[in-house]
Amino acid sequence: MTTPVHHTATGVRGARATTVISDWSVLSPYGIGAGPFTEGVAARRPVVPRLNRDVWQAPPGDACLVPGFDVVALLGSRGTRTMDRLTGLTVATLGTLLEPDGSRRRLDEPEHVGLVLGTGSGSVQSTMDFTRDALTGARPFYVDPALFPNTVMNRAAGQSAIWYGLKGPNATLAGGPLTGLQALRYATRLREHGYSRTVLCGAVEEFSEQRAWLAWHTRGEERRSTPLAEACAMFLLEDAGTAVGAGRTPRADILAVRFGAGPRGPRAALDTCVRGALEAAGIHPREVAFAAPSGRLTPPPGTCPMGFGGPAGGDDADTVETAVLGDVLAGADTEFIGVRELFGDASAASAGVQLAAVLAAAAHRPRPGAAAVVTSVDDDGLVACLVLRLR
């Protein structure tokens, strides 16, 4: 007999219980693991951008890298000889989540643990380096075949599954700044459809000379002032019963994930998206305790929630979110969390880092039962909104 399936904003209900985030970890410009990240976000401490010009031949400007990140130092020499930076960031972040004290944490059977990873387009550096070698070598095929896997978009997810013995569904998505929320929705639907009992989900972005030059040539003068950043955020998704049975404390329920776009510009599209996500989640705007936009926070001419964000004019992708959230959440006791102000543009990892920042803020200033909102807007006007219920 087929189990009835009911569609909602997050995906599917009926096949599985509501998905919760039971644990998370981050590699960020604050350091390795959730601890340094939580401390930095809680203190709203900006990272000072630095870039060693003896190592990186990048365009003018500094960047916010994971301090002291070295693939071999973190993961050992075995199996890392040809591992690129993007894959190393992903494998290392999963290590801080799955083996926080050096011993493997209790999860479901490997065949029931899936992995969904969001990325820009894989490693830009690996792809361009390999292509350059094919064009500049004596023969097009005079390339190192061991480096070819790094040019494939799902290299990081595949290598991570092999590294930790994960045999469930494995998927990679690419979608710009929205990627983290796309991966979260995909992972939630995957789990609630019954394809995987437990899903590790996240988003990653590396810093490289190639990425820096691409950003330099495609961003305007004003946006060039925002330093590039690298990061990887990973989340453990399961149902509350499984989490409690394994000794983990659920951090938040995933209530709704919505996406949108519209001919009237990102502001109208995001307004519809946020209101629709809140309605689908059954959340009143006054219940929202934390809001994390992907753009910079813009102080309004008057008052605003917690003094961080509020109405602003224009449809600039960097400022439209605080305008919309200021309107939708007017009168709510909402704390706005601006990750971009703290360490710059994490690109494909942005939405994942925003979600981690919400969980970090909630751990430091608990608001059990309240809601949280994460939004994202890209340069093409695509928008997204995640609604959580904090535990």
Rank of each mutant, 00 (worst) to 15 (best):
G120E: 10
A58N: 08
G245N: 10
L386C: 09
G88R: 10
G331W: 06
E209K: 00
S28W: 01
S103L: 12
V288P: 00
G33T: 04
P177Q: 05
S25R: 00
V71T: 15
V374F: 01
H284F: 06
I337P: 03
A157F: 01
G61I: 10
E230Y: 12
R53I: 12
A281Q: 02
Y164W: 11
V339L: 14
R16K: 13
W213H: 11
D315E: 15
T136D: 12
R197Q: 11
S225L: 14
E111M: 07
E111I: 05
R106M: 08
G40W: 03
D70A: 14
R367Q: 15
G241P: 02
L200H: 00
P46V: 13
G247T: 06
A346L: 09
V358P: 01
A171S: 14
A363Y: 01
E279Y: 00
G168P: 02
G307V: 03
V41K: 05
R85Y: 10
K167L: 13
E206S: 08
G262Y: 12
E205D: 11
A134G: 13
G68S: 09
A215G: 04
P100C: 10
G76Q: 02
R16P: 01
L236E: 03
I337G: 02
A317G: 04
A9W: 06
G118H: 05
R365H: 14
A357Q: 06
G137P: 07
L98K: 04
G180M: 01
R251N: 00
